[in-house]
Amino acid sequence: MNNYKISITLLNDGSVDPLVRALNVIRRGKVNVKSIIMSSNQNHVNVEVYVEGIEDEVNWVCNKLNKLYDIVNVSYTTSISIPKVQSLQVGERNG
């Protein structure tokens, strides 16, 4: 088992549908998801998914992602370390 970073570029259609489609593929892959970082601009959504697994399975995920019609690019690299991302403090308000 190794760590990998899957980098995905999606078309941005103003909805989260392209992202959900991609996540639907990843959830069927035999990999453990450690972290997801997402950013977007007007045209594209960029997603970095840090996973743990065997290369064959990471390859399976990437090949399946590549079939999606809102995918611009998919690639994976061996990840040296999984980034730690500070979560936002969520407060509850009632207006």
Partner: peptide, 13 residues
């Protein structure tokens, strides 16, 4: 759309 995503090639809303 959400329900069918994993069982189709593509969806449009």
């Amino acid at each position: 759309v959400g329900l069918s995503m994993p069982i189709v090639k593509h969806t449009f809303m």
